[in-house]
Design a protein around this nucleic acid. Structure first.
Length: 293
DNA sequence: ATGTTTGTTCCGAT
DNA sequence: CATCGGAACAAACA
C-alpha cells in the first residue's frame, strides 16, 4: 500500500522514536523467506545503535552505528510497527527487533501479509546504489517543468505509466498518480510524446501538491486497513482523495471511468480529462497511398 | 469460485 | 539491442 507519503510518515515517526536505541535481539519468523546473506547481515547488527532514519524513494533507511544501514521496502502490504508492549499480538509479523535505550525496551516489527516487501542491510556503497536506482523525485525543488517534460518524453508509453516508473520518476504510486492526473486535467492514457510544456508544468505542480497533502495527512488508509503508521493509527488522506475510488467526478458530477491501465486500476473523468490527442499510430502505407500523400 | 489489491522485478515479444 | 507490458511474487477479502 504504502506510497511516498505513507513511507515518509513512517520514516519520520521512526526518526522521532528510535534514535539512540540499540538492537538487542532479532527474531525472524519461521517460514519467512529471507536470503541467507540478509539473515547473516542482520545478525551483524546486534548491539548497534540507531543514528538516523530517512527515506529513499519508497524505502525506509535506518542508519546505524559503524555505517551500517537497515532498509525496508514495504511493497503492497508491508508494515513497520513500534510498541513497548512485549505481549502485543500483531498480524503477519515477519521480523521483530528488540531495541533498548538505558532501561527502556521497545519492539520494532516488520509485518507483511503478501510478502512482497524486502528487508536488507547495506553499507555506504549499497546506499549509493539504491539511490542511483531511482529517477527524479517530483518533490525535488530543483526539478523544473523543462526537466520534467524531458523525463516524460524519455519513455514511449502513456503518461500514467511513466509516472509510476520509479526508475524514471520516483515517489508517485497508483493512487497519488491517479489523483495528480485528475488535478492536472490530463487523461491518463495520453501518450508521453503528446505532453507539452504547459501540461508538464501543471502536472509537476499537482504531483507536488498531492504528495505534500498526503504527507500532511499522514498517508492514506483504505478500508482493508493495510496501511497504518508505526503506532497502528490510520492516515487521513483517504478522506481527501480527488478521484481515486469515486463514482462521480467531484468537479462536474459525470460518472467516472474505471479502467485498468498497464494493470493498475485507474479512475478518470471523461469530461474533465478528455482524451484529446491520438497516439502516434503506425500506419502501413502502400505505394499507391504514398502518391496520394 | 473469481476477481480485486496501495509495488517491483523479471522475462518474453516486438 | 532497446523498449514495452504482462506475469509473477502471496494472501485476504468481497
Amino acid at each position: 500500500m504504502p506510497e511516498l507519503p505513507e513511507v515518509h510518515t513512517i520514516a519520520n515517526d521512526l526518526n522521532n522514536n528510535i534514535i539512540g536505541y540499540e538492537i538487542k535481539n532479532i527474531k525472524i519468523t519461521k517460514n519467512y523467506k529471507i536470503p541467507e546473506l540478509v539473515k547473516k547481515r542482520l545478525s551483524s547488527l546486534l548491539n548497534k545503535k540507531f543514528i538516523e532514519v530517512k527515506r529513499i524513494a519508497k524505502n525506509i533507511v535506518i542508519k546505524l552505528s559503524e555505517n551500517d544501514f537497515l532498509t525496508f521496502h514495504l511493497a503492497m502490504t508491508g508494515r513497520i510497527l513500534l510498541t513497548s508492549d512485549k505481549d502485543k499480538k500483531d498480524n503477519w509479523v515477519k521480523i521483530v527487533f528488540e531495541i533498548s535505550k538505558n532501561d527502556d525496551v521497545k519492539y520494532l516489527k516488520f509485518c507483511d501479509m503478501r510478502q512482497f516487501g524486502k528487508v536488507n542491510v547495506l553499507d555506504e556503497a549499497g546506499i549509493r546504489d539504491l539511490e542511483n536506482k531511482y529517477g527524479i523525485s517530483v518533490l525535488n525543488k530543483k526539478i523544473t517543468p523543462e526537466d520534467f517534460l524531458k523525463t516524460i518524453h524519455s519513455k514511449k508509453t502513456n503518461i500514467k505509466n511513466v509516472l509510476l516508473d520509479q526508475s524514471i520518476i520516483s515517489g508517485l504510486g497508483n493512487i497519488y498518480a491517479t489523483d495528480a492526473l485528475f488535478l492536472a486535467r490530463i487523461n491518463p492514457k495520453t501518450p508521453t510524446q503528446s505532453i507539452n510544456l504547459n501540461e508538464s508544468k501543471i502536472l509537476l505542480e499537482k504531483s507536488r501538491e498531492i504528495l505534500n497533502e498526503g504527507i500532511k495527512n499522514r498517508g492514506s488508509t483504505l478500508p482493508d486497513k493495510m496501511y497504518v503508521d508505526i503506532f497502528g493509527n490510520s492516515g487521513h488522506q483517504q478522506n481527501y482523495f480527488k478521484i481515486y475510488g469515486k463514482d462521480k467526478c467531484p468537479s462536474c458530477g459525470t460518472k467516472t471511468i474505471f479502467e485498468k491501465i498497464n494493470g493498475r486500476g485507474t479512475y478518470f473523468c471523461p469530461i474533465c480529462q478528455p482524451y484529446k490527442k491520438e497516439p502516434l499510430k503506425k500506419v502501413k502505407v502502400n505505394e499507391g497511398q504514398k502518391q496520394l500523400l
